[in-house]
Each structure stands twice: as structure tokens, then as C-alpha cells.
Design a protein around this nucleic acid. Sequence first.
DNA 1: TAAAATTGGTATGAACTCCGACCATTAAGA
DNA 2: TCTTAATGGTCGGAGTTCATACCAATTTTA
Lengths: 244, 244
Amino acid sequence: MSASPHALRLQQAVLRPVRGHHAFEACVEQLATAIRLGVYQRGTQLPAERELAEQLGVSRATLREAIAALRAAGLVETTRGRGGGTIVQRRPARRASVARRAIRGRQADLLDALDFRSVVEPGAAALAASRELDDATRTVLSESLEAVSAAPSGEDHRQCDSRLHLAIAAASGSTRLMAAVTQAQADLDEMLHAIPVLRPNITHSTAQHKSIVRAILAGRPTTASRVMTEHCEDTAALLRGLLG
Amino acid sequence: MSASPHALRLQQAVLRPVRGHHAFEACVEQLATAIRLGVYQRGTQLPAERELAEQLGVSRATLREAIAALRAAGLVETTRGRGGGTIVQRRPARRASVARRAIRGRQADLLDALDFRSVVEPGAAALAASRELDDATRTVLSESLEAVSAAPSGEDHRQCDSRLHLAIAAASGSTRLMAAVTQAQADLDEMLHAIPVLRPNITHSTAQHKSIVRAILAGRPTTASRVMTEHCEDTAALLRGLLG
DNA sequence: TAAAATTGGTATGAACTCCGACCATTAAGA
DNA sequence: TCTTAATGGTCGGAGTTCATACCAATTTTA
């Protein structure tokens, strides 16, 4: 029995590279992304090597190579002894020219990333809204919202924005959605740095954020999903025009 | 500066194991899943080793170990020479008892999988409906729908069902959504085998499938999403009750 | 002040993975 | 029939990654 054309299509789509070869590179990317998105803010300390290695599921030797790369890139600094550790030094100074080169020839992939985001972020918001959130989570959402509203435009605003979206995903309680949103935010961040939009409508964006968080806290999944969809689509429309 | 509780939460959620070490195991799992979901049907031939190795992003040596494991498990048979290759021999004979053991203590993870599915499958359906689909894709969707409608209940029906859902995801044109739906179907398949639902309402399910495909072919994203959401929730409600 | 604890730094050998080249087998085509 | 081509089978060396120690530096604490 030979495979039908239909089967062939599925097979090519289902089978995916098993691994982004080199655990080392994957570690560098995860940590650099976490720093870029503001998960680890400037001046804060990374977990101890042994702990971080366990979280990432790699040996300490491999993690150390990754940290060495971050150190060489000037992203972190390391001190020894008790109370020492690896400290986030500054955000990667990504020049727009470098960022533009990084996205060259990846239009299709980036458009895919925008589509993916428009699916998972509203889904995460809706799920978060359908949960009984504990006080700690509610506080995190409120504080994240406040932070992004208060932050000036630019790099800081972008990081606060990421943190809010990640906080919403975390509030959904879904590990898978959290991973999906993290990926979406990383892709989005890359695009926003490659294509510096002159003056994003932060006022509008902030209003949407408020509306989303309010819907989540009030337990209104439909509203949360709808507004988040609009929010994602606004950004996507902007970027799609500049990617073409 | 020390990390706030909020930051700690994000950090633990964002950082994820870099890989399920052992490319070998990952290959076995991907191939076994593809066979279980009916991507490779019984009697069909897997791609040549060199080709498959490239698709999976591993060396031929590693892929061969994975195939050897599948062969040892009786899932495939291999012949040499031109026209030879590795042929899918039979579906894994998973006994319910074994499947039940596999999901023991994973309730939270499986509930997560159901939530994730209810996000990505409707999203994929909506996206597919918003595309200008070419004739080949339209044909695939129609044929997949027919196959699942025609299949009797049981293992065959389950495979056809998976294939339809994967075909819809493929029609969305999004690599990321395709991967997400593949993962969702794999998780779902595991649950359905562990918890053999006596008599799923196949009539109802088939009506939903028809409605979804019709909406996609007619270019109605909202309808496609809504019906797919209902479709996923029906299954999820059934399984949630049996997982608690 | 000295001991304890915690952190990063180093080293070694085993296991895994990769790559490339070559061999053996078999079916298709000239 | 004979040649060609495609397939799986085998081998060896190089590079990664891992696990497990142990060392060094520094702060905390008794």
C-alpha cells in the first residue's frame, strides 16, 4: 500500500526536528529571551547554577557554558562565594540593523508567529478569566497592569508589557499555554526590535490591557478573549504591513 | 536588588527543560505517535532512513536506533534493498491497564492538555477558515471528513478522527498551530485509550465534524471556531469526569 | 575569630550523538 | 541478463553532553 498525497502532506507536517541541536545553544537562547522579556530584570540575580541547571534539565557543565556565553556578550556578570552568583547586567544592546538582519527571509515564519499569538494569547486570557484566582495571582495581575501603564514608552515599556502578558498566561494555570505565550512573546519581541514602530499607540494599548485584566479579575472569559484578540490583531496589523 | 515574588513565579514558569534528552527517545516517541494517530497507516511505508533522519533533525545512526526500538516493539518491519524499507506492521497493542498506569498521577497535566486543546484546535479551525484554500487542501478536508464519517467506531474511527483534526490544522497553514494540534491529539489519544469511553456519541461528533469542515470550506472562521470549541468541550467534559 | 554554608571554578571519564564513508541486498530498468 | 539505483547495515573518529567528584572564594553565623 502506498501513501496517498493526503498522507504525505500530514507526514511532512507532523514530523518535526526533534531538537534544536546543542543543549548549550538552547540554554543561551532561553536565558537571553528571559532576560530580554524582563523575566529577569536588570540588577536581579539568576538562580544558583545548580538550581538553574535542574530547571533547564541540563548538566551544570552545559549550563556554565551558556552562562559564559552570556557573560562574554556582556549580559551578565558573575561573582564567587556565598552570596555571589550571576547578575543581570544590562539588556542586550540589539541594534535595529542586527535585528533586521535576523528576520530577513523569515517573513512566512513571522507571520505564522503572529497568527499563533492571536490564538494562544486570547485563549490564555479566557482560561485565566474562567479560573478562581487566588489573591496572590490577582495581586500580580494588578501590579503588572500598573507597571505597564506607568512605564514610559521604549525598552522599559516593552518589558513591562511582556511581563503582563506572561502573568496572564501564568494565571491561566496551563503549563502548555504558558510555554506557547512565552514563545509568542519572544517572537513578537524580536519583530518589534527589528521594526521599531515610531510611536505605538500606547494609550490605546493601555486601555486594552486594563480592559483585559478587568475582565479576567471579574471572571468574564468571553470579554477577556475578545479584547485580547483585538489587542493582538492591532499589533499584528501594524507588523504585517511592515513585514511585507 | 532581589527578585519580587511576582518575578519568581514568572521565572519558574518561563524556564523549561531544554529537551527530553536523548534524541533517540524523542524519535521513538514522535514516530510511535505518528503511527498511533494514523499519520502512517498500517501497511504503509516510512520514508527512507536518510530522508526521515533529515526531517527529524537527527543523524541516521540515531534514527536507526529509534527504528530498531519500534521494530523490537513489533510496530514496524524492515526489509532491505531497493523498494525495501520500514513498513508499519500494526498499531501498538496498548492494553487499557497499561494505558491507565501511564496516566496515573498526571491528572493535572491531562486537564491542562484538554484546556490547551480547546484553545488551539478552534484557533486552527478559524485560521483555516480565513484562508484561501487551494483545491488540494479542500479535497483533503473533504476526504478526511468522509473517512471519519464512514469509519466504524473503535480504533479505526479514532485514527480517522485524528487525521481529520490534523488535516484541519495543516489547512491553517501555521507550522506552530500544526505542532500544537499534533501534541493535543497525542495527549487526547493517550487519554482515550486509558479511559475507554463505552459508546461515544459518534453521531453527534460526526455532525460537528461536518459542520466544522463546511464552515472552513465556506470561509466562516467564527462558525468554525465555535463549533470546534463545542466539539472539544464535549470530549473534554466526558474525560474530565472520568479523570477526577 | 573560626567554623559552616553557599556560591562559582575545575577536572575526568563515560555515554550519547553526529558525520561521513563504505558495504550488502534487492528491485527496477536498459 | 546485466547495469543501475535505492534501500538498509556497518564502522570509526570527532564533538557534546553528562555525572560526579573536588577545589576556591566569600559571606554568614556561631
